[in-house]
Design a protein around this nucleic acid. Structure first.
Lengths: 187, 187
DNA sequence: GATCTTCTAAACTGATTGGTCCATAAGATA
DNA sequence: TATCTTATGGACCAATCAGTTTAGAAGATC
């Protein structure tokens, strides 16, 4: 029997996609082994804490990715350029609406309670990073906060609607309008 | 042993709340019996098809509610008043963000595939009903369609963000801004 | 109050769940 | 090549899963 050797970063990425497709409860160990080709031995070797640890590490992994690729640029870069880049980054990350936001999905059911802190801080930092960039670009704090909330909310809603309608085009269309609205507000 | 007698409409409403809290996969039969106080005997009496039938009837029940209380008024009523009422209806139905949209939640994972048609037509009709009202109120078809998509998307995103942040206030705030935007667009 | 239908409770089934264990295969180090 | 660490496959476990069955209780009809 041929053996495939995985390393932990691979395992995290593979299991993450299964959680994304099936949700936390829907992703059973047998589902995970079947879709990732990782055996139970491997999975419990990497994640002795089982499903809960898998999900926790996946959330941390996603969060770290967003910090580096979206939040830091918004917090530290030239605000208008960073905001423009944010839309491209989001479109790439969410594969133009074919991929959902796992952290958002976890927020909807009782899975949220297991990871409440991580989920809250992910959205909080996203909104704060974007609001900060909008403020540095000249908006008042109140306007910036409201626009940032709307942008994040609109993006999450767009992911949901794209899947609900089975229509990828709607995602790009809504993203484009959200982008336009921020640029209009900045004048 | 005291017996409680339920009727099917009660059963549908009770089970719906469990699906809302736990998601389709997270809602096991023992969970459902525990939270609803409906025994397995009762559940399989009302829903011989098991979980799948429960979810299907719940979706149909929710859809029918929205048709009567939101879509028809938008389609048939005075457009500006109907749109204003829509926001109140939504706030009441979703309990100011404490209750999620089950059909939206189903759209996010593979549960969608089981109920794809019903999920798509629910969102389609909502957007079309709102776009129709906006058109009758004077907007062009293109503007109306885009604004309707944004409103529905924003509402769904607001439900998600409210739960993610554990902050009910954010839901009302975003709803208010969405409402303002539609009214501004109508002049 | 007898009968008939509707609904409930709980015991039961086989399949699947999350999780444990361990012999051993593959890479790395020496 | 010998050794040591890391990763793997799969058998195994108790608990839980969805679903079935059945005896009988509650309401309705007469």
């Amino acid at each position: 029997m041929p053996r495939t050797i995985f390393e932990k970063p691979d395992a995290i990425a593979l299991v993450a996609e299964v959680f994304r497709e099936l949700g936390y409860e829907g992703a059973s160990m047998s589902n995970i082994t079947a879709r990732t080709k990782l055996s139970k031995g491997s999975l419990y070797h990497f994640f002795p804490g089982g499903k809960e640890q898998m999900a926790a590490e996946i959330i941390a992994h996603i969060d770290a990715w967003f910090v580096v690729d979206m939040f830091k640029p918004l917090e530290e870069g030239e605000p208008r350029a960073a905001i423009r880049t944010m839309w491209e980054t989001a479109d790439r990350y969410f594969r133009s609406g074919r991929r959902i936001c796992l952290i958002g999905a976890f927020a909807l059911d009782e899975t949220r309670d297991r990871f409440a802190m991580a989920i809250r801080s992910y959205f909080q930092r996203w909104i704060e990073a974007l609001a900060g960039a909008l403020t540095r670009a000249g908006l008042t704090g109140i306007e910036a906060q409201a626009l940032a909330e709307e942008a994040v909310v609109g993006l999450q809603g767009a992911l949901m609607l794209a899947r609900a309608l089975g229509d990828e085009a709607v995602f790009g269309r809504i993203l484009e309008r959200l982008k336009q609205r921020l640029e209009t507000a900045l004048g």
